[in-house]
Nucleic acid binder design. Structure first.
Lengths: 142, 142
DNA sequence: TCGTATATTGATAATCATTTTCAAAAAGGC
DNA sequence: GCCTTTTTGAAAATGATTATCAATATACGA
């Protein structure tokens, strides 16, 4: 899984004529080995421990590249920070967000996806992607 | 409809011990008579024509109050700006967003809502609100 | 109506996340 | 190795939003 993501990004990079650099490799490894939904800042801090020489501008730039390449997706939960999550080809998942403790649970629901397509078709829209987030309290917090 | 929103905000204000001010009245009228999904800046610019003496800090503060009072809701479409839309008691609508021309279409779908509740229940979540946005191209742009 | 306590305003400064700038360093051909 | 182009890191810039604070307005009791 991780290997194919690496491959996918390398394909994207060479197709775009990007040069391969140490920094991007490090950031890619770190991102792929990381839990989901992390902030640019979180990844930057995590990296800095082992690689104090990587600047945060590079982390920002590289995560944007990951999103562009399709191996990551930007998500925003309304707390002002952009998060990045791994993107698994072909599948899509949505989020339950606990507004008390910040816990994030992922879920998938094909019926909802199908209904979304129907709604879009009714309005003549061609859907590229979507975002569904349910906000509330998790088991522990309610 | 507009009158009841005004009433609703006044109830909220008095319950919170807020004083009634000219500025808030003007902003409330302007907001209620406005199209949906407007940016704080858009409302500020619109106001400034007739009321050059209202500061944008007040507009920001007041829109946050509207959201708190329940007559408005904050929405974010990922373009970096917070938008406010009218909130109709008891009903909830979601959005189709055209990523080319920026068109926004609202829709409601009870079945999706029901499925969301089911998903939340399965994970032990108590849902307070949710957000569903479908991004793609509208009829004209596709 | 007057005074007083409290909330609100507007201008400005501050903040926070993100982006841009730019000179120096690194990569990829040839 | 040379030369062109991309990338990097540090710092400055940006853009949206929030906090600060003195001046002003409001509510309410005397």
């Amino acid at each position: 899984m991780i290997i194919s993501k690496k491959q996918a990004f390398q394909d994207f990079a060479s197709a775009k004529g990007l040069k391969s650099t140490k920094q991007r490799d490090i950031i890619l490894d770190s991102f792929l080995s990381c839990h989901q939904h992390l902030t640019t800042e979180e990844l930057y801090l995590k990296l800095k421990t082992d690689n104090p020489n990587i600047g945060f501008a590079t982390v920002y730039r590289t995560l944007k590249l990951f999103a562009e390449s399709g191996i990551a997706r930007e998500i925003q939960f309304g707390d002002g920070q952009t998060r990045y999550e791994h993107m698994h080809a072909g599948e899509h998942h949505d989020h339950l967000v606990c507004t008390r403790c910040g816990a994030i649970v992922e879920f998938e629901n094909e019926t909802i996806e199908k209904l979304q397509s129907e709604v879009a078709a009714q309005h003549g829209f061609t859907i590229k992607n979507h975002k569904l987030e349910l906000y509330g309290y998790c088991v522990k917090c309610s």
